[in-house]
Amino acid sequence: MPDLNIAAIAAGYGAADVLHGVGLDLPAGGRVALVGSNGAGKTTLVKTINGLIAARAGAVRWDGQEITRTRPHDRTRLGIATVAEGRLLFPDCTVEENLVAASTHGAAKARREETKAEVFDLFPRLRERARQRAGTLSGGEQQMVAIGRALMTRPRLLILDEPSIGLAPKVVAEIFAVLAALSARGMSLLLVEQNIQLSLRSVDYAYVLQQGRLVLEGPAADLLADRQVRAAYLGQ
């Protein structure tokens, strides 16, 4: 029984559908990548999972419960956290305030100090920058705040939309090391990336999205190894 199950999702903006019947499974504690070129619909799929846009057809199920119509902040409270594309930080708030903002409800609030200490252990640089306004940080540090903020909600699933974009390789390596550590602790990961090599190396299973349809799926190692697949779908 998968933890996250998406079935036959259609969704989009305005009159046009971006996604045409997309399905995806993510087992508890699993690591799944969603890859595809720009405009394939990856971010749209992320938004139908976290609820920022409503699915027009199909179902999103989480932990055996249908959440297709659940409001986005309630989905966060159910354990689905998103590190959004563009990060969506609160730039005029300090790093610490950004973390606090994500722990104002239920268990996340009760365990705020504990989680904050965990986040600071994962990203020691954030502890140094705790009192600095998020908008003044470097891109890599902002990405760390975004991940830390998502962790403050005490999720079971972390969705990351383009976490490596625009960052120096050293910072990307640092962030992916943290993701590996989180996965080792049992966190489910859904990784959305344009950097296909990187994402396929970091996950167990991958889906390839093209023009709003899933065109391929399989164990990440198989996709990486298959030259034809790489040529046809992964642009290599």
Partner: peptide
């Protein structure tokens, strides 16, 4: 959107 993803009800 950032606030909503933090679990804050608008």
């Amino acid at each position: 959107d950032g606030a909503v993803l933090c679990g804050i009800g608008l």
